[in-house]
Design a protein around this nucleic acid. Structure first.
Length: 225
DNA sequence: GCGACAG
DNA sequence: ATCTTGTCGC
C-alpha cells in the first residue's frame, strides 16, 4: 500500500509539488481511446463528521460498461486550498485504486493536471505516484483563460496561462458548456481530448467521472448511516 | 490590500 | 465539495 506523506502546511505542500513535478512524463502519447480500461476517480466529503470516501470505477473503454469498482474511507487530512487540491483528495483515492482487482488503465481525474499554477495538479500528482497514465477533466476554467469553442460536440479552444497552452476547453455535447481537459502524466493533449470525447458519448461529463461521482456519494451516505 | 480561485 | 424544491426544456 502506498503511503502518502501529508505536508504540515502550505509552504511544505508547494515544495512537494515542486519536487515531484520533475517526474511527470510528457513524451508519451498514452493508450489509444476505445481500447483497454479507463478508470474514473472521485471523492465525497462530510466535513462535520470528518469522513472522506473515494471511489474508483473501471470501465471497458470500448463499451463504457463497468468492469470493476472500489471505494475507500478516510479522514479529512488537508483543507481545500486552490492549487493544493491533490493533498486533500489523493490519500483516499490511492487506497481506492489499490483495492481494484484489475489494472486501471488510463485514470481520469475530476480536476486538472498540467493546467496548474506550478504545472502539477491532481492528475499529474496521481499519475506520478501510481505510474499510471492520467488526465484531468475539470468543470471550471480555474484561473485560466480561453475563447469560447465552437458550438458543436468536438469543438475546442486552447486553455491559456499567460499565452501558454496548458489544456483545452472541449465541447462534449452540442449546446452545453465545455469541459476543461489537461494532461496529467504519460499522455498527450490530443489523446486526452480524444479520450474525453469518447467517454462523454452521452453526457457533458465523461462516463468515468459520472460513475465515480455517483459511487462515492452513495458510499458516503452508507458510511454515515 | 483586493479579487480570483480545480474540488 | 456542500447547503437544497421546484421548475423550464427536450
Amino acid at each position: 500500500m502506498t503511503t502518502f506523506p501529508m505536508p504540515a502546511d502550505e509552504a511544505e505542500a508547494r515544495a512537494v509539488q515542486d519536487a515531484l513535478r520533475t517526474r511527470v512524463v510528457l513524451d508519451e502519447t498514452g493508450p489509444p481511446p476505445g481500447t483497454g480500461h479507463v478508470t474514473g476517480v472521485d471523492v465525497a466529503y462530510d466535513e462535520e463528521r470528518d469522513v472522506v470516501v473515494a471511489a474508483a470505477v473501471v470501465l471497458d473503454a470500448a463499451t463504457l460498461g463497468v468492469v470493476a469498482e472500489s471505494t475507500a474511507r478516510g479522514t479529512v487530512s488537508f483543507p481545500y486550498i486552490p492549487g493544493l487540491l491533490a493533498f486533500r483528495e489523493i490519500p483516499t483515492v490511492l487506497a481506492a485504486l489499490e483495492a481494484l482487482p484489475v489494472d486501471p488503465g488510463l485514470v481520469v481525474c475530476d480536476g486538472y493536471g498540467l493546467a496548474h499554477p506550478r504545472r502539477f495538479g491532481l492528475a499529474s500528482h496521481l499519475g506520478v505516484l501510481t505510474g499510471l497514465p492520467a488526465i484531468g477533466v475539470a468543470k471550471n476554467p480555474f484561473t485560466f483563460h480561453h475563447e469560447q469553442p465552437g458550438p458543436r460536440r468536438g469543438d475546442s479552444s486552447p486553455l491559456l496561462d499567460e499565452g501558454e497552452e496548458v489544456g483545452r476547453a472541449l465541447r462534449t455535447q452540442d449546446g452545453t458548456k465545455p469541459v476543461f481537459v489537461s494532461v496529467g502524466h504519460r499522455t498527450g493533449l490530443d489523446n486526452a481530448c480524444a479520450h474525453t470525447l469518447a467517454l462523454a458519448r452521452d453526457f457533458r461529463q465523461p462516463e468515468t467521472t459520472r460513475r465515480a461521482d455517483a459511487l462515492c456519494r452513495s458510499a458516503l451516505r452508507e458510511a454515515l448511516a
